[in-house]
């Protein structure tokens, strides 16, 4: 190496040019990658700093307190935390069985001519902006839900805690439904890809052993795709937790933690959308920044958990085989 550089001077020059060019290339691309990191850190810092007064004033009580009273300057974010978690949980409850069934249909059962169009429709469903779901939810679904679903439910089962309250239309139920519709395509599309990736031998072996198609799917295909399907579900959960517009438009914006599906509720994302630009008190602004930070931390934990779970399941599956 040393010899060549000492002897061939044109070579040396070109090597130097390489070095300069390569160094520049490295620095420029690295700078852009780091710019993103810097922005994220800056954002975190700014949010944390503006949330600080609320943290100092309420401590952990900020998360558990359920009074949100700008007049008395008392802020507890529990109703929003609850609303976010509960609505996301309900949405998963609705969307996971339907989504996985849809994925099984697309990868295992559907005739070829049908799976193309259905796949395309499902992907389109994922691309529709949330404000459009909100528009449809508010103007079409909510009135229908109020008159056709909630009123009879409330009338028949009004003394169950789950259906107590009054049929307002805008409610936890409406939010959960819209959320479920929005996360369905994620689950279906990802789970479908996962199931399609399951090797054919897996199915053929099961069928050859005399399994019915369902047994093949249940015993041979699904276990194989378990990790991926779990990943799809968690991905959907992350989306549901942070969803803002459609939920804001149909949930009723009432800061109260209630188990009832008919009651209006509030989520962290919606309170930000409604109040962030308009809060005037110092502590009020700080409390909202605290909500933003909490929402960030929760989605961070969920995503971290997802990655860890997928990693663990993958590990164990690999180990047992």
């Amino acid at each position: 190496m040393k010899q060549t550089t000492a002897v061939g001077s044109p070579r040396l020059r070109s090597r130097r040019r390489h070095d300069v060019g390569d160094a520049l290339f490295l620095r420029v691309t690295q700078a852009f990658a780091l710019a993103m990191v810097a922005v994220v850190l800056l954002a975190l810092g700014v949010t944390a700093r503006s949330a600080w007064p609320a943290v100092r004033a309420f401590g952990l009580g900020f998360l558990t307190g359920s009074t949100w009273d700008p007049v008395a300057d008392k802020f507890g974010a529990w109703p929003f935390v609850w609303g976010t978690l509960y609505s996301s949980f309900l949405a998963l409850l609705l969307a996971v069985p339907v989504g996985v069934a849809g994925a099984i249909f697309l990868s295992e059962l559907s005739p070829r001519w049908l799976s193309g169009p259905v796949s395309f429709l499902v992907e389109l469903l994922a691309a529709i902006p949330s404000v459009v779901y909100g528009l449809w939810g508010l103007l079409v679904m909510v009135p229908w839900l109020r008159d056709r679903v909630q009123a009879p439910l409330n009338g028949a089962l009004g003394n169950w805690p789950l259906f107590s309250g009054a049929p307002y239309g805008v409610s936890m139920m409406a939010a959960a439904l819209v959320l479920a519709i929005m996360i369905l395509p994620i689950i279906t599309a990802v789970a479908r890809d996962v199931l399609r990736a399951v090797p054919r031998e897996q199915r053929e072996a099961a069928l050859a052993l005399g399994s019915t198609r369902w047994e093949t799917i249940w015993r041979a295909v699904l276990p194989f795709g378990r990790v991926g399907v779990l990943g799809a579900v968690i991905l959907a959960l992350g989306r549901a937790l942070g969803e803002t517009m459609a939920v804001t438009m149909v949930i009723g914006n009432r800061p109260e933690a209630s188990i009832s599906l008919l009651n209006p509720a509030y989520t962290m994302a919606s309170v930000l959308a409604n109040e962030y630009a308009e809060a005037t008190g110092r502590l009020h602004v700080a409390a909202l920044s605290g909500v933003a930070l909490t929402l960030f931390v929760i989605t961070f934990i969920v995503n971290g958990l997802a990655r860890w779970l997928v990693w663990r399941v993958a590990h164990r599956a690999g180990g047992s085989r």
Binding site: V100, I181, T212
Partner: peptide, 26 residues
């Protein structure tokens, strides 16, 4: 087993239908 098979496969068809229904409505 055959009945289970039919029922579950039917549910999958239903699931696909339900997944597409909201899209069609919206």
């Amino acid at each position: 087993r055959r009945l289970t098979n039919l029922a579950m496969l039917g549910l999958c068809w239903l699931g696909a239908g339900l997944a597409v229904l909201p899209l069609v409505l919206v």
